[in-house]
Design a protein around this nucleic acid. Structure first.
Lengths: 255, 255
DNA sequence: GTTCCAGTTA
DNA sequence: TAACTGGAAC
């Protein structure tokens, strides 16, 4: 028997938002540790990983690990049926071929439950090695979102140049070119500080389309962490309050 | 080399707002005197002139005059990438076929630059003679904006009747007709005073569509000056704080 | 292309 | 606080 309860159904909504356009269906792997997900988009360009630790749930019971294969389209439809502040309980019986989502309004005057058929998805586990980063940038997530939106007006690819002094996002297109440079903030105590740990300068290009999509995760966290490495995909991480993270891996564009 | 710096990128945003819907592209003529622009709308009904004197800039360097032909659509897109309080530096090298717009956040933790390709536009210079006015009206710009908006609900043309006693804006349409009369204020020392210099009574009609568009310049100045003449287009002038003006010329409708 | 939502401004 | 505008979703 698996049963997990969240006080905010909207959290799952926010998680689905940036991934539903990239991935049709995915396994939610439930274990005593928590719920995790690994999925690649249909074009196999980006990898998405999600972790929701068991201790971050309002209650969490998982006797045996199980994989809940779900259509994200269906899941998203179901989540649209949740009220803004509804509680969410996810239930699955061992060996069952369905999972149940129960929404409760805070005043308990409205309870809905949706039972969804599980999909048999093959469980690809991707080996993610801890990359030897060239630069790690922490910055306000809204700023990254703004940068992606602004640069999108001029072109389809962004070149990220990171060194100790700052991170430069560059785009070029038919009508011209643009660069946005972010420098580390000096008041490091601020929650929204921009910080850069740079081991070595690095220059890489990425498809703005994907980055813009990732930034739909902005509501999950006020800050975002970019881990940039010459040899590995860039990692865009949104911490999720007290419970885990959502990470996006994107391979650079080769010239 | 041309380089001009404004402490408020938003000033250029406000200037673009009323002209971008009238003109697709225009030459920004840069000289030691400042930046000027003359452009007619695509239907050749209105003429727009802009002057930004060099001494109104935070810094201004212009060795040789040059014309920067810009797509106002592109320029407007770029200005959308500026932060609210960003500084703006405009740079162009002599003989270059691009111009660069540099935005700096006040704390300098974010610098963006956009390089735009210049367009080869023919440089029509329009002969604007100082018209022998029948009436010159100075009034609060917000009031003119309100009048144009209000009258637009009833018809497409406004008839302006000006004499020493006041200025009457009249509209008539299928659902009825309306008149708004503005009289000179008696406390002439007020900044927002309405004043009328009238040489002779004058009655002229104009398309409200254009007038309404011009009043998008309202954020540029608390007051607006209307120069009305029986023989020339009406001139709607918005002074721009310490740096210049934006003027709109509109030919009257003939009955 | 149309509608909905959010941010911004008056 | 309300209207408007711009951006995003369907």
């Amino acid at each position: 028997m698996f049963e997990a309860r969240l006080l905010k159904a909207s959290l799952l909504k926010k998680i689905l938002e940036p991934i539903k356009d990239l991935v049709d269906s995915a396994n939610f792997d439930c274990s005593p540790v928590g719920i995790s997900l690994q999925a690649m988009d249909s074009t196999h360009v980006t990898l998405i990983t999600l972790l929701l630790r068991s201790d971050g749930f309002d209650s969490y019971n998982c006797d045996r690990s199980l994989s809940l294969g779900l259509s994200l389209v269906s899941l998203n439809k179901i989540l649209k049926c949740a009220g803004n502040d509804d509680f969410l309980t996810i239930k699955a019986r061992d060996e069952a071929d369905t999972v149940t989502f129960v929404f409760e309004s805070p005043k308990s005057d409205r309870i809905s439950d949706f039972e969804v058929k599980l999909l048999e998805l093959k469980n690809d586990q991707y080996n993610i090695r801890d990359s030897d980063y060239s630069a790690v940038v922490k910055m306000p997530s809204a700023e990254l979102q703004r940068i992606c939106r602004d640069l999108s007006i001029m072109g389809e690819n962004v070149t990220i140049t990171a060194n100790k002094e700052g991170v430069k996002f560059s785009v070029s297109g038919d009508s011209g070119s643009g660069n946005i440079t972010v420098r580390p903030t000096t008041d490091t105590e601020a929650d929204l500080a921009t910080t850069i740990e740079s081991k070595e300068p690095v220059v890489l290009s990425f498809a703005l389309k994907f980055l813009s999509n990732f930034t739909k995760a902005t509501p999950l966290s006020p800050t975002v962490k970019l881990t940039i490495s010459e040899t590995d995909p860039i990692v865009i991480e949104y911490k999720i309050d007290d419970i885990g993270y959502l990470r996006f891996f994107l391979a650079p564009k080769m010239d």
